[in-house]
Design a protein around this nucleic acid. Structure first.
Lengths: 358, 358
DNA sequence: TTGTATGCGTTATCAA
DNA sequence: TTGATAACGCATACAA
């Protein structure tokens, strides 16, 4: 039924002439499937053939085609990773952990930026899923209902990172932003500060929960005043920190401390204090969030909440890999915690009115 | 020759039951290839069929399988991107530009971290090439001979970014680090500084060329002294900036200015000056590199060389896309330049001994 | 442990 | 403009 006589030279090969598994197989004198097995699961092939095949692979410079592999196995060796942004150092560190956690494997990584948008997350999820990824790592626990449904029927391990909550889609690695915020602010209260402001940019869900932690601590101390809270949906930056601080001071001139949503803001506050000759920590106490390297070097050094971002990346990958391998990880929700690092910016020894800790 | 009688229900479908192009085709009453065409190049299908097909696609929720597509067309819709590191804000910005430049397309992005290693770059290139990417974007112009050979026979557009040179593999977008370094240091010379140090971390090829620019400027002014140069292969950080500055001061107590490899180092210097009560810009002038947001907010604000990192990302993608589409871009090597931003940290009005500029 | 037959979902090629 | 057929390179299912 074919137009051209059978047996004659068939159509020109479409591929780029790269060696295929069949080339390796014929050179090694085995069947293609044996090469396939030798490459993916050497244990299942006798040592003799394994060596022979390896030699053929080396000689030909054969590299498996991941696309063909993905098509045939209906499973791409890809980890899909959804983060709000990469220019945010926090997520850059998480992603570094993810890369490092996969560097000894052949898994690829595909990153998507949600730009803090739930709709964008849905869209990217849809695209990612079309590749049948081996696992998905998504940021936060506030997926839209649609996104959540997509994740639930993703057919692969899913890890939600950066936060923890009571209702994981599958697995979770993170920490409580509420507790972290509360702890930082409690420290300010304990240090004797009484007009403690909150400075926040972007105000994504995690920022909101840190704000809630702030509020819990200040209210418990009977120090809450709504004018103490200064936020903006604008993305965070050092210069924005300066603006927010100026705004806060204008609203509440008696302000004596600030808990900053993140270290960039805290740095902006610190510089503004220098410029306006406001003594830190005496006139103003400053606490940041994330504990970037510079907080330790700053003058005065800045109190901050250290978070385990890199470790979150590593661990999320480790858990996903266990799940991919079949053996689910022991714990499906892991709280990696945080650590308050007290530094000069909040150091007020023996202040009147300090609440003593239990 | 088959074991089971022909015609009977064949093996269970291996795929996950997702709709395929064949499902869309039969629902729309056309051939699969027509659906394929309607999706990729609507112009080539009559409007009637196009509408019919679109309806079927929507009804079924059909999403093309990128793996099958890549296999059949021997061309993955992927841009391979090789950068040294993502935690380096500079490259995070470049990558942001790359993402933004592709956000209106269906191209995926695959990032590889070379960790500033040429060998690692070779390895990643090998892996990336196995996917037959649509284009490659690599950092710098110092590829190993092997890497360069791989790039030359990559069979896709290649853009080298962040630097420019005389011998592009294919295309280039960047600027001259030598000129940037020289310009910054010339500014310090013009401002009247005489013991100008160089502080450098990591010392990758771009840092080396900035150092060469430093040297050219200082030598031209007859101010070179090898003890003024303080470098380390250690990765850059704010705390390292402090250390380098301390080392430099110990070597040359009369040091009166520093050109820092990057803004992190400059920030470390600034903080150390605060801590040690060294007046900036009077006792020490500080110039940084990259012009991060914080340089403008710092007190005193810090002179820095602004580079167009985000734009480099965008433009490299734009050029690659033109090349992918067939029409090569007009210019194959684009110098995006830099801009010296003068700020308080180097402001010394009317100093004796200042060389007047032509 | 190894091999045979077949399918994965799509596009290139060629013909109508 | 549309369609039939074969290929893309590999892995699954099953048999030996």
């Amino acid at each position: 039924m074919r137009a051209s006589p059978p047996g004659l030279k068939t159509r020109a090969r479409r591929g780029g002439g790269r060696p295929t598994i069949a080339d390796v197989a014929s050179l090694a004198g085995v069947a293609a499937i044996t090469v396939s097995r030798a490459l993916r699961d050497p244990e299942r092939v006798s040592e003799d053939l394994r060596r022979q095949i390896q030699r053929a692979v080396d000689e030909l410079g054969y590299v498996p085609d991941p696309n063909a592999r993905a098509l045939a196995s209906a499973q791409a060796e890809v980890f899909g990773v959804l983060v709000p942004s990469l220019t945010n150092n926090v997520f850059a560190e998480v992603v570094r952990g993810i890369y490092d956690g996969l560097s000894d494997s052949s898994f690829r990584i595909q990153i998507g930026h949600t730009h803090y948008s739930g709709l964008e997350e849905e869209r990217l999820l849809q695209i990612f899923l079309s590749q049948r990824p081996a696992a998905l790592i998504v940021s936060g626990i506030d997926q839209t209902p649609t996104a959540r449904r997509l994740l639930e029927k993703a057919g692969c391990p899913v890890v939600q990172i950066m936060e923890i909550g009571s209702d994981p889609v599958d697995m979770m690695v993170g920490f409580s932003h509420f507790e972290a915020g509360r702890t930082a602010v409690q420290h300010l209260v304990d240090a004797g500060y009484r007009r403690i402001g909150f400075l926040g940019a972007r105000m994504d869900p995690r920022s909101q929960r840190r704000l809630a932690g702030y509020r819990a601590a200040v209210e418990a101390a009977g120090l809450f005043d709504r004018r103490l809270v200064t936020t903006t949906p604008v993305p965070s930056s050092v210069s924005l920190g300066r603006e927010l601080f100026r705004d806060a001071l204008a609203k509440v001139p008696a302000l004596d401390a600030v808990f900053c949503n993140n270290d960039d803001i805290a740095l902006g506050v610190l510089f503004e204090c220098h410029r306006a000759s406001i003594a830190v920590p005496d006139k103003i106490g400053i606490a940041g969030f994330n504990d970037l390297d510079m907080m330790q070097v700053a003058f005065p050094s800045v109190t901050s909440v250290m978070t385990h971002r890199y470790e979150i990346g590593c661990l999320s990958v480790a858990m996903a890999r266990e799940a991919v391998a079949g053996s689910g990880p022991e714990r499906r929700v892991v709280d990696l915690g945080f650590e308050l690092i007290r530094r000069e910016s909040t150091f007020r020894p023996a202040t009147a009115g300090t609440r003593s800790k239990a």
